[in-house]
Amino acid sequence: MEQQGETPQWVDPMMRGGYAARGVVNFLVGVFAFGAAWYETGEAEGTTGALKSLLGGGLGIVLLVLIAVGLAAYAAWRVTDAWLDLEDHGLDPAGLLARSGMVITGLFNLGLAGYALSLIWTANFSFGGSGGSSGGSGGASGAKGVTAWVMSLPYGRWAIAAAGLVILGAGLYFFRKAWSGSYKQHLECTRLSERLDPLAKIGLVAEGIVIAIIGGFFVWAGWTADPNQAGGLGEALRTLHQQAYGRVLLGAVAIGLMLYCLYCLIEAVYRFIPRLKGADTLTLADRWQDKAERQLRELVD
């Protein structure tokens, strides 16, 4: 295992840029979802639809480039984190599972970065075209196409169902992360980060909800052997919109996704890499523990 002095210094800015890009993407998705819920501006868009909506002007192209670079940086950060074990997960089964998850999320965000660059390439800088109205359905069609191909393989439907269980587990992990406050261990405690923490927690719960719904889609697609049942983020948001009180549900989740953007930005500013952490760094977890101990002493006294 590498020592603290051997940890590459360039990992830190790469990590911060990556979290910032993730925050922007989630904010865009949340804005579209809120507009669909309350202003009937169309269907809720998924991640690819939100990125496609940026086409139509020079500023949008610049923002797409920045997002693509940021997502690629986030992907590189996750893979580097897993490879060098910068967060000391170790080599036991739980640690290897956590590090494998980092690689998977890194590859997913690398795919999004490639998609953003492909939008710029195919746009040919012709502004004012058709925006992102079809982006969400395109993303859903892609998920269904891949699902159909996997189902054509031996035991493919069960592989899809298993993948759905993994995605569902990832959604539940977000709930656990919010409930336990484990994310606070890697966040520097300041007056602002402490005040924003409750909002960040709500954002984690909202992200967990949509990820769990996506996992449910894939489990059901595998169980019914119907690839049309699979779907991504846009499909999950549209499903919420179609329920009883759908506008309220979608609006609440949309606000949650925008708060998840806030969580990502908090990570971009206040997150630190354990091996680069100073000995005197106070974390949000330290502050929470101090408060809990102080309250316990007051009860005892």
Results as ranks from 00 to 15, higher is better:
Ala178Lys: 03
Leu165Glu: 01
Val205Gly: 10
Asp226Gln: 09
Ala170Leu: 14
Gly232Lys: 07
Leu249Phe: 07
Gln229Gly: 04
Asp197His: 12
Ser193Gly: 13
Leu192Asn: 08
Arg176Tyr: 14
Leu187Cys: 01
Gly231Phe: 06
Gln229Lys: 14
Lys177Ile: 02
Asp197Thr: 09
Cys189Ser: 15
Gly171Ser: 08
Ala178Asp: 05
Tyr245Gln: 13
Thr190Leu: 06
Gly171Asp: 05
Gly181Arg: 00
Gln243Gly: 07
Ala200Leu: 03
Tyr245Asn: 15
Ile213Gly: 02
Cys189Met: 01
Trp223Glu: 10
Thr224Ser: 13
Tyr173Ile: 08
Gly256Ala: 13
Arg195Ile: 05
Asn228Trp: 10
Leu237Val: 03
Ala244Ser: 11
Ala212Glu: 05
Ala244Pro: 09
Gly169Cys: 13
His241Trp: 10
Gly234Val: 09
Leu187Met: 15
Ile214Lys: 00
Ala221Phe: 06
Leu204Gly: 07
Pro198Trp: 09
Thr224Asp: 11
Arg195Phe: 11
Ile202Glu: 08
Phe175Ala: 02
Ala252Pro: 00
Ala244Lys: 05
Ile202Ser: 08
Ala178His: 02
Val248Met: 13
Leu165Arg: 00
Val248Tyr: 05
Ala225Gln: 15
Thr239Lys: 04
Gly171Thr: 06
Ile167Gln: 08
Ala236Phe: 01
Leu237Met: 08
